[in-house]
Computed example of a mutant assay.
Amino acid sequence: MSRRGSAAEGVFLEDIPVDTTLRRHLGELSAEVREALLRIGAIRRVAAGAVVMEDNSLCDELGYILEGTLAMVKHLRDGRRHIIGLLVPTDFFGRLFDGPATFSVEAIGDARLLSFPRAPFEALLGQEPDLERLFMVHLLDELDAAREWLLLMNGPKVVQRVASFLLILLRRMADNASSEVVLPLARKDLAHYLGARPETLSRAFASLARQGAIEPIDAVSGRYRVLDRQMLLDLSGQDLVLE
């Protein structure tokens, strides 16, 4: 494992062929575009707790998440910190063609990223329509995530927010053939994220399990199986969902 050229404390370069990762994660791009990305990209290992993008700073890198979960964190003037969104594998982060970031990006646990310097990536984006399309899809995903956040926090009861959160995880993180989800946050952090107390959050999970919507596989590590998606949707109280 190499520690050359670390971008921030807790962020280290990996000696892993970038091309192999590009083929696995960005295989829909042409060989020419992958070759261009190969010339500017690097794989980084990010330690838990590392800040990979500072709030109110000009972002000089773009990141694509390979493994792990990162949090978008808003720092308030009174010193409080609020998690305003989660980034999971296949998500991009970084601000292009614009000013400073409006939140920080921090690693919740150990993670691996594909990292690209901003200026060369911007230049490549203007030259390659396929890459531009991929990035535009990412921007649309960001808008969807923002709408999901509004829907998530719309639930007046904690059990509704938990049900909505599990549905979001099921859509974004689970294998299509599986109904298993893994909570990307520790219980204390998840409670903060959902605007609840840890004990209230535990009761919400227990209530969903009693009603048959989910079952714990390993509650300690945060692994659950969704047994009834429709029940979970009903319990989430998502009034904005149209049949």
Rank of each mutant, 00 (worst) to 15 (best):
A163Y: 09
D189V: 14
R171I: 05
V162A: 05
R161H: 07
A163N: 11
I168H: 07
L166K: 05
L166R: 01
A174T: 10
D189K: 12
R187G: 07
V182P: 00
S179Q: 12
R161S: 06
R171N: 13
A177D: 13
G195F: 04
V159E: 14
R171C: 03
A177K: 11
L166P: 01
L166T: 03
R197M: 07
L190G: 09
H192I: 02
A177G: 10
I168M: 13
D175E: 14
Y193N: 06
S164T: 15
M173G: 04
H192N: 10
L170K: 15
Y193V: 05
H192M: 01
L170E: 10
H192K: 06
L190N: 08
G195Y: 03
L190A: 11
L166Y: 00
M173W: 00
A191D: 08
Y193D: 02
L167D: 06
S164W: 10
L185W: 01
I168P: 00
M173H: 00
V162P: 04
L166V: 12
V162Y: 02
R187W: 11
L170T: 10
D189E: 15
R197Q: 14
F165Y: 15
S178L: 02
N176W: 05
E180C: 01
V181R: 02
N176P: 09
G195L: 02
A163Q: 09
S164Y: 04
I168Y: 08
L167W: 03
A186D: 13
R197K: 15
A177L: 09
H192E: 13
E180M: 05
V182A: 12
K188E: 15
R171K: 14
